[in-house]
Simulated assay, not measured.
Amino acid sequence: MNDRPSLPARLFHRWLLRYVPVAALILLGSVLLGYGLGNQVPAEWLQNPGTTGENPFMPAELTTLSLTINNLGALLVMALGAISLGSMTVLSLILNGLLIGVVVGIALKQVSPIVVAALIVPHGLIEIPALLIVAAVGLRFGWHTIQYIRGSVDTLVTEQDLQEAGWLLVTAAVLIVIAAYIEANLTLEIASQYTDTDLSGVAADRIAIAPR
């Protein structure tokens, strides 16, 4: 009889249970800080010169493909925590949190909270978990590398680690594609049901994972 835990159980207990909460706390703290800053930043600061409502952190045209490429690139940077003792992962979480908080703070000056939620939640419910999954991979590899350097573990990385990390990264990539489709094709339509305001220039309709 094989008593080895199933793949989902191993992924949860070895990767997600400990490192997702850490990543979530870093992200949440950064969002709150960014929100405080966003209340002090003019909405025009999130626009490129000569454009209307274009966030300089985002592709000029919001399509499923452009958002997918943008966000996968950002997640790749976050995954580099695996070879940077987790520092790239932490920095990416902080930058993403600050950006989200700033944009939300600015958007709340433009439209009601329910509209801001409608612009963020539909794709954010899928995009943020993808971000946290990749962050967990970067943080776990980073921490394990520190333990290896200190002599607390004998092996830097195992075949099982690589296989499980691969499953998590593929899962995150699939979630990113789904979130990109929702953001590009459904977000504005959903949010428009709650207001008569033209949302094309609202800061919150440009929220996504920040690029590298």
Rank of each mutant, 00 (worst) to 15 (best):
D3G: 10
P5H: 04
P5V: 05
P5A: 07
S6F: 02
H13S: 14
H13G: 04
R14K: 12
L17W: 09
R18T: 13
Y19E: 13
Y19H: 15
P21M: 01
P21T: 03
L25D: 00
I26F: 12
I26Y: 02
L27E: 03
L28Q: 05
L32S: 09
L33W: 11
Y35V: 09
G36N: 00
G38T: 06
V41G: 02
Q47H: 14
Q47F: 07
Q47C: 14
N48E: 14
P49C: 06
G50Q: 03
E54T: 01
N55L: 05
M58W: 09
A60E: 11
E61M: 13
T63I: 06
T63Q: 11
T63E: 03
S66K: 13
N70P: 00
L72D: 00
A74C: 13
L75A: 04
V77Y: 02
G81K: 04
L85T: 10
S87Q: 04
T89D: 02
L91P: 04
G97W: 07
V102T: 09
V103P: 07
L108W: 04
Q110M: 02
Q110H: 04
Q110V: 11
V111T: 12
S112D: 08
P113G: 07
L119A: 08
I120M: 15
H123C: 13
L125F: 10
I126Q: 07
E127M: 12
E127C: 08
I128C: 09
A135L: 07
V137N: 04
V137E: 06
L139K: 00
F141C: 10
Q147R: 15
Y148D: 07
Y148I: 02
S152L: 12
V153R: 15
V153I: 13
L156F: 02
V157W: 12
V157E: 14
T158Q: 03
T158H: 03
D161I: 06
Q163V: 14
E164F: 12
E164D: 03
A165N: 05
W167Y: 14
L168Y: 01
A172H: 05
A172K: 11
A173Q: 03
V174M: 11
I176K: 08
I176M: 07
A179F: 01
A180Y: 14
Y181T: 10
I182Y: 12
N185W: 06
T187G: 03
L188G: 13
I190G: 06
S192H: 06
S192Q: 15
T197M: 02
L199E: 10
S200L: 14
A204P: 08
D205C: 07
R206N: 06
A208Y: 09
I209C: 03
R212E: 10
